[in-house]
């Protein structure tokens, strides 16, 4: 006679980083209100809206946190930018009801690059990113607002951004969300599918996509990054079923870019060196 056992199995662990998007929306809108209004007494936010999913999510969050009339979405095309990006940026601005500003950065970027005709595409891309930073800060000063950052955790961990360019705004609501989590949040917020489903791109070079640049899909990268950040070793992660080439690619990119996640390295001379001995939090 066989006993009738009920077999109850644990679900296999899924490495894909997840969020409860409703909770994260609540948390991040509180964060934006708290940082701008309560801490700084400022009611206006400025978001560089590129047409991609990251800046779309930030625009939706700011509109909900502050009211759409208190948010300016700045479109900053360069002459080689994809027309689709510009259209998608307009769609975000229309859907959220935020105010619009269009600043063509071509003349400013080309004005400098005319003196550097041999600049590589990477250098040209960095000049564009840093020009957009100048525009965002200036547009913020114009309306007594604060530029709000749009860099996600995956690109921050990969160093896939322009130092003191995309990462420069003083607050960033999505910087601790992996790209796959940004996609989850975007669906919850109602960002149009066309923006969520298209291949992510920095749009600094014609036809580029993030995943081709990085050599790995965001889904796979985020799973590996998640394990790495939790403290698992490369060997552990490979043993969990990931390809050694992919794990090593992720690890290499993370290790090569720690400097990009910090401010300038300052030579320590005294016993009062800033952020070494003299320690005060950012909101002190």
């Amino acid at each position: 006679m066989s006993a009738a056992f009920t077999i109850v199995r644990a679900r296999p662990l899924d490495d894909t980083p997840t969020i409860d998007p409703a909770l994260v929306e609540r948390w991040l809108t509180e964060f934006i209100r708290d940082e701008l209004v309560r801490r700084r007494g400022i009611h206006h936010a400025v978001v560089g809206v590129s047409g991609g999913v990251d800046s779309a999510v930030v625009a939706y969050l700011c509109a909900r946190a502050l009211g759409p009339r208190n948010v300016v979405g700045v479109r900053m095309p360069y002459r080689t930018s994809s027309p689709q990006s510009l259209e998608h940026a307009a769609l975000v601005i229309r859907e959220t009801g935020i105010d619009e500003r269009l600043v063509d950065i071509s003349a400013a970027v080309d004005g400098y690059l005319a003196q550097e005709p041999d600049a590589s595409s990477t250098r040209r891309g960095n000049v564009m990113a840093r020009m957009r930073m100048i525009v965002l800060f200036d547009q913020s000063a114009k309306i007594n607002g604060v530029p709000v950052g749009t860099g996600n955790k995956s690109e921050r961990m990969f160093g896939y951004f322009t130092w003191h360019g995309d990462d420069s705004p003083p607050i960033n609501p999505i910087g601790d969300l992996f790209k796959t989590q940004v996609w989850q949040l975007a669906r919850h917020l109602g960002v149009p599918d066309a923006i969520i489903d298209k291949p992510a791109t920095a749009d600094l070079i014609r036809g580029q996509t993030d995943e081709e640049d990085l050599g790995i899909t965001y889904l796979q990268a985020d799973r590996i990054l998640n394990r790495l950040l939790l403290g698992y070793t490369v060997e552990d992660i490979i043993a969990a079923g990931y390809s050694s080439a992919q794990v090593e690619l992720v690890k290499r990119r993370v290790d090569a870019t720690h400097w990009k996640r910090h401010l300038a390295t300052t030579a320590l001379i005294s016993t009062t060196a800033i952020n070494e001995f003299y320690l005060r939090p950012v909101d002190y």
Binding site: W27, E30, F31, D34, E35, R38, R39, I171, P281, D283
Partner: peptide, 8 residues
């Protein structure tokens, strides 16, 4: 409650 330097 409240946020301090991004930590809520």
């Amino acid at each position: 409650v409240g946020f301090e330097g991004g930590k809520g």
